[in-house]
């Protein structure tokens, strides 16, 4: 049977929204060209799109301090046994379990993932943290991360996050200078003539995208 329907799902990512747009128009041209050359029709539906995360140094340094005040995740002997067993499946990627206890140094970097928190970070000064809810060496979107997310190790990581976020919020409510510094940095980073633009256009939420 010669098929009359076929679909392909593409993601495009770049540090800058304008970079995504530039590649995107080439992708659209390729889709049109492919359809012309094979004598078929093509259309496309944008499913999602995110802005990059706008870092706020003033807030990030504050959050780093709060996280150090709270400290990392300490395993009970049972949790250590769980982690050691799971770590076997990680092979070379496994990291020393002590990584769950320590706080990583404060650095600036680019992560190659994307998140819709990016769009929030262009609407208000935004800051976050990450905690050791998974056995060291575990990647997101794996069965190992799913297993730990349902275990007491995961719940302890959530506690570390809850404590740190609570301390950060208390600091922000009581420190108007920090709020002002965060806002000034936010406005300078966005630029004076910034206008919010979503990368998914004016479409409605795709409520059935998982059907």
């Amino acid at each position: 049977m010669v098929p009359d329907f076929a679909e392909v799902f593409y993601y495009v990512r770049h540090p800058d929204p304008a970079g995504v747009e530039a590649i995107w128009s080439r992708l659209e041209q390729a889709a049109r060209g492919a359809a012309m050359g094979t004598g078929v029709e093509v259309d496309w539906e944008v499913i999602h799109g995110n802005n990059p995360l706008l870092v706020n140094e003033a807030l990030a340094r504050m959050m780093d301090g709060k996280l150090r005040q709270v400290g990392g995740v300490e395993y009970t002997p049972e949790e250590r046994a769980f982690a050691e067993r799971l770590a076997v499946s990680l092979g070379d990627a496994a990291q020393p379990l002590e990584q769950a206890q320590r706080i990583e140094p404060y650095t600036s970097s680019l992560g190659y993932g994307s998140t819709d928190v990016g769009d929030v970070s262009y609407a208000a000064p935004t800051v976050g943290l990450r905690t050791a809810t998974w056995v060291p060496g575990t990647s997101a979107h794996s069965w190992q991360s799913a297993a730990a997310s349902g275990s007491s190790i995961g719940f302890k990581g959530a506690q570390v996050a809850a404590k740190t976020l609570t301390l950060a919020a208390v600091e922000l409510f009581t420190n108007p200078q920090l709020r002002a510094a965060a806002k000034a940095e936010f406005e300078a980073a966005r630029g004076a003539d910034y206008e919010y633009k979503s990368l998914l256009g004016d479409r409605d939420p795709p409520l059935d995208y998982r059907d």
């Binding site: 540090p15 780093d64 140094p105 993932g113």
Partner: peptide
């Protein structure tokens, strides 16, 4: 709590 940005 390192400052890590992400891709659009």
């Amino acid at each position: 709590a390192a400052a890590r940005t992400t891709l659009a």
